[in-house]
Amino acid sequence: MRLNWLIAVIGTTAVICTNALPAHARAFRVGSLLCMSSPRIGLILGSAQELNCAFRSTNPPRQYTYVGRIRRLGLDLGATSAGTLSWAVLARNSRIRPGTLRGNYVGASANVALGPSLGANVLIGGSRRTIMLQPVSIERAIGLNLAAGVTNLTLDSRGRRSVE
């Protein structure tokens, strides 16, 4: 029963955040963001993880690196190993430059781990709130954990590398 309630809350939050971009703003899929996370220990009311991220733009093919920190506030019990988080990146226009993803993202998240971990993060923000990290991200790690709450992701740019 509680799991169904948690899934309903996450689904509702995903719909709300998906509609957060104004209706007149067409969203372009501009690439993907892959983040490697540090191990996480839930502190009952929240947790924090350091991230090293790579954004791969689709056109032109470029790679930009970011460092970040993800903080969760809410229920967070247990621990997980270092893992990965990945998002499709949507933006109001297709022009992505170094540092475009820099900024703060806010939304909801949930994670369940009984050995392999499965998680979802719904985040919007960035440069003038023009960037949306795909409504549901994929989070992979190993551990024993239950987490749900409000999430804040902060990204800072590290530079550009060409992708070949």
Results as ranks from 00 to 15, higher is better:
Val112Ile: 15
Ala147Arg: 08
Val163His: 05
Tyr105Met: 01
Thr80Tyr: 06
Tyr66Gln: 03
Arg95His: 06
Arg102Asp: 13
Ala82Tyr: 12
Leu21Pro: 03
Arg102Met: 07
Tyr105Asp: 05
Val30His: 01
Thr18Cys: 06
Leu85Gly: 02
Ile131Gln: 04
Tyr66Trp: 08
Leu21Met: 07
Ala14Ser: 04
Asn145Lys: 13
Arg128Leu: 08
Glu139Val: 11
Met1Lys: 11
Asn4Lys: 08
Gly119Met: 00
Gly42Phe: 03
Gly42Met: 00
Leu77Gly: 02
Cys17Trp: 10
Leu90Thr: 05
Ser86Trp: 13
Val150Lys: 13
Ala27Asn: 00
Gly107Lys: 02
Val15Glu: 13
Ile142Arg: 13
Ile7Cys: 04
Ala141Cys: 05
Thr13Lys: 09
Val112Cys: 06
Asp76Lys: 05
Pro135Trp: 05
Arg128Cys: 01
Leu51Cys: 10
Arg158Glu: 07
Pro116Ile: 00
Leu33Trp: 00
Tyr64Leu: 09
Ser162Gly: 00
Cys53Asp: 06
Thr84Leu: 13
Ser81Leu: 14
Glu50Phe: 06
Met132Asn: 03
Val89Lys: 05
Leu155Val: 08
Leu75Arg: 15
Glu164Phe: 12
Thr130Gly: 12
Thr151Ala: 13
Pro22Glu: 06
Asn52Gln: 15
Leu45Glu: 10
Ile138Arg: 12
Arg160Thr: 12
Arg69Ile: 09
Asn19Val: 04
Arg92Cys: 00
Ile44Leu: 14
Gly125Tyr: 00
His24Val: 13
Met132Glu: 05
Ile44Met: 12
Arg71Cys: 01
Gly68Gln: 10
Ser157Asp: 15
Pro61Ile: 06
Val89Trp: 01
Ala88Gly: 14
Ala20His: 07
Ala108Trp: 08
His24Gly: 02
Pro22Asp: 13
Ala8Phe: 10
Asn111Ile: 00
Asn152Phe: 05
Leu153Trp: 06
Gly119Ser: 06
Ala54Arg: 13
Met1Pro: 10
Ala27Asp: 01
Leu153Ala: 07
Arg69Ala: 11
Gly143Trp: 02
Ala82Gly: 14
Ser109His: 09
Val15Ser: 10
Leu153Asn: 04
Gly149Phe: 06
Ile44Thr: 15
Thr58Ser: 07
Leu77Arg: 09
Leu85Lys: 06
Gly83Lys: 12
Ala54Gly: 08
Ala54Tyr: 05
Ala14Asp: 06
Pro98Leu: 03
Arg2Gly: 13
Ile70Lys: 09
Ala147Gly: 04
Thr100Lys: 09
Gly31Ala: 05
Leu90Asn: 02
Val112Leu: 15
Ala14Cys: 01
Val106Cys: 04
